[in-house]
Amino acid sequence: MQQVATAQSQQYIGEPLIAVEHVSRVITTRTQKTVILDDVTFVVPAGSLFAINGPSGSGKSTLLNLLTGIDRPTVGRVIFAGTELQAKSEDALARWRGTHVGIIFQFFQLVPTLTAQENVLLALELGGGLPRSAWRRRAQECLEIVGLGAFGRRLPSALSGGQQQRVAIARALANDPPVLIADEPTGNLDSHTAAQVFATLASLTERGKTVVYVTHDPRLAARAAARIDLLDGRIVAQHNAGAVVAEVQR
C-alpha cells in the first residue's frame, strides 16, 4: 500500500519540480501600490528539502501562497511539473491541491471537533484520490509515519502543540502529494518540539517528497538542501535553487 501511495512522488525525483519564472506580486489600492514580490525566479528540485528564508515582511508567505495556487502572481508564471497554475480556476486549483500539494500551517488549523484520525480522513475525503475503502488504513499509515499511530482517537485539544503539528503533517501526507509546503511549521512550538517536528518533516524527503518550508530562522534555513533568501520581495541569496539573485541596494 505504501509503495502504491508513494509512486506519485517517485516520478519527479531529480527534476526541477516547481519553476517560478519572473514572478511579481503587487497589491494596488486607490492610493498606493505595494510590491510584495519583485521579479522572483527560481526552481525547486524534486525530492529536495527547500527553504524560503527571510525576515518578516520579505514576502515569504506570499511566495508560498503562489506556489500552492492560493494566490496568483501579478506578473510571471508558476509552473508545477509542467503545468502552469495560473491557468486553472479556483475549484480546479482546489482539486489540484488535493492531490499535488500538502500544506502545513503555522497554527496547525486542525478541525477541533474531529479526532486526529478524522482530520486526516477529512483530507482524504476532500482530496478524493483514494477509494473510500482505503481511507481509514491510509489515515492510520500517515499517523504512524509521523509517530502518532496511537493517538488517532484523540481530539486536537487533547494533543500537545508538537503533536498537533504532526497531525497536520499526517493530514498533508494523506493524499500522497509529491510536495509538502509548510508555512513556519515550527514557529508556534518550543525549541525542543520544533526540532522533533522539523526532523519529521525533513525525513519525508527520504520517502520521495519535496518539502518546501518557510522560515525566518537562519539556522533552520541552513538545514535545507536548497534555499532562497528573500528581502523586501526580492531574492538576495540562493543555494541549489537556480535562482536569479537580485542586486542588494545598500
Partner: peptide
C-alpha cells in the same frame, strides 16, 4: 473561515 480555508487548501472544492 479558517477551517474553510484549510479545507480548500487540502483540496476541498466550493461544492464539496
Amino acid at each position: 473561515t479558517a477551517i474553510i480555508g484549510t479545507m480548500k487548501a487540502m483540496g476541498g472544492t466550493r461544492g464539496k
